[in-house]
Design a protein around this nucleic acid. Structure first.
Lengths: 322, 322
DNA sequence: TTCCCGCATGTAAACGATTACACTCGGGGG
DNA sequence: CCCCCGAGTGTAATCGTTTACATGCGGGAA
């Protein structure tokens, strides 16, 4: 079913059919209707590939994520999808690739299939990107450490939020606060740790090294961290987990040991994943508007797409609330 | 950067470059290397659209989901992405569309951009699909009520699993079991309810209508259901929630009222989302291997893609474990 | 020597749309 | 009456690949 058959059926040329479909150029009303009828009867749908070949746009953006796992991920996608749909764009998703060769292959394979990309890579290094992205392709980086001026980046105010958590806890009288960090290679995790450390220093709270326990953002690691914290002496009066999953794991460890939250110990998480709200007691957490983060990334990309030589890429930071 | 420039640079024709890149036809070793070098130097990547125009394949499959929300969703995608990547396919995701006109538009827009589709539509009706899918496009339906012989379908054994939950509870001595159902329009929810009802009848347990409380799969609705269950008298000794989110909401309501699980009341969920494992006490739930479900769907689709006139589409059901 | 065959490569026709340009036609101004 | 213009439509080039077919060449068989 090609445009030619539609044209034949409607008794016009392919050019006319194309004009009707794209609402370009002057068309007599009667012709328009004849074409429309033919299109409907034949259930004609334009061939996407042929179209993007000549128009040089695909109406598709690529999204590369580190891990297709957990609620954080689905929220980001949701936001992206939302914005994409409003503008008639499609999204091509892919999880990250263990192997570096493989991830390069993907980056290249996407070339020519997408108009732009959103890359969320808290731990992929900059060179890998640089080497595999045509510099003409609009890219928005999400929560990434890469500070290359060539690409737009979007992140959240990890440092500020972490610091305000510490200040909040200090305000409640806590002076010995345990921190469950995220994986060392993760950019967000590092920023959160830095923010917390700085606040602890500034407020002259207890900064003994044993109060920093490394996790990997998983609930399991949170659970392990929880158990280790219980063994510390004197026992910390508050815990700041660098994400909610770990906080939940932690909570489960504390409960298992009969320690009540918040009566015996304070616990704060980070991310405000939907599940957090339904725990008893509700987890105190830092709200990061995840879906809007994705949405904003998409809008930024769309902006770059529509004004090719727009203002230079900027690094933006989204605020958070407790 | 087109194949022509590569050809010029390597001093060969475009046909030869194409042959080297696709490893087709006989090529002298020396020529192959010259071409390879030129490709590397120029960082040439074939233009996807041009390619799929002539080869008539896009190496992309479309995935339509009802809701891009929560862990269930991300698990499905993860499974699909996994299988897709292994076979060099890309996935084009989109959430469902409130408006019917809009969802038809999407269905059609995908035409010509994908080789096949995975559609998860627990509540979209069959006609809407039928009217908008070219019958030549391979499609795999996921957890859907549609029983049209033309498409392959994949689902989980909702009825059997629900029945076994009830039998399990009955085995523990419970005779008055409350059921928190999913939304009525949802196919899975209905099957789960049916399975539970049948088991209750077969075991001659208490089947009073007030024991069935309608939820909508959200944690909020689970919470509300939990509160209503507490008001029943005599109070049920066990609760079966049609998914984990509602079970968690329920748990939170019970806890709020000082009712202990499992001491005072038994609670069973459905789905085994990762979060479920980290609650205290761990939630009893039906394990549905979600990621493998997605993976299997993708494999099925790939099978259909490679053997166009393969065996007729079959309806398959995946087992579950408690 | 002649013929034929197979390897290695080139030439050019697709694929299905968009769009610059050419054309026709009817009407209004000179 | 002629010219010009704009509305409406058609013709054909174009996008970047793949691939059927043609071509040239060298070697072995007759």
């Amino acid at each position: 079913m090609t445009i030619k058959e539609v044209a034949r059926r409607a008794g016009v040329s392919t050019a006319t059919v194309s004009r009707v479909l794209n609402e370009k150029g002057p068309i007599r009303d009667e012709t328009r209707q004849r074409v429309r009828r033919a299109v409907d009867r034949l259930r004609y749908v334009p061939h996407g590939a042929a179209r993007s070949l000549i128009t040089r746009r695909t109406s598709t953006v690529g999204v590369i994520l580190p891990d297709i796992y957990g609620e954080f991920f689905s929220e980001v996608i949701r936001g992206i999808d939302l914005a994409a749909r409003k503008s008639g764009y499609h999204i091509l998703v892919t999880g990250s690739h263990s192997d570096r060769r493989e991830s390069e292959a993907v980056l290249r394979a996407l070339r020519g299939r997408v108009d732009g990309m959103i890359i969320m890579s808290p731990d992929i290094d900059a060179e890998a990107l640089e080497a595999n992205l045509p510099e003409t392709l609009p890219v928005v980086l999400l929560n990434t450490a890469v500070r290359n001026g060539a690409w737009a980046a979007l992140g959240i105010d990890n440092r500020g939020a972490a610091a305000s958590v510490i200040r909040h806890l200090a305000g409640l009288g806590h002076r010995r606060i345990a921190i469950v960090t995220g994986p060392w290679r993760n950019h967000d995790a590092r920023e959160r740790l830095e923010g917390a450390r700085r606040a602890i220093r500034e407020l002259s709270l207890d900064d003994s090294p044993e109060l920093e326990i490394e996790g990997d953002f998983s609930q399991e690691s949170g659970y392990r961290a929880g158990r280790r914290i219980l063994e510390l002496s004197p026992r910390p009066t508050a815990i700041f987990a660098a994400n909610d999953s770990m906080a939940i794991g932690c909570l489960s460890a504390l409960r298992g040991a009969g320690v009540q939250v918040p009566r015996d110990i304070a616990l704060v998480g980070f991310d405000d994943i939907p599940t957090a709200r339904f725990l008893t007691p509700p987890l105190t957490t830092v709200r990061v508007a995840i879906a809007p983060l994705g949405e904003r990334a998409m809008l930024k990309l769309l902006g770059a797409l529509s004004s090719p030589r727009g203002r230079r890429p900027r690094r933006e930071t989204l605020p958070t609330t407790l």
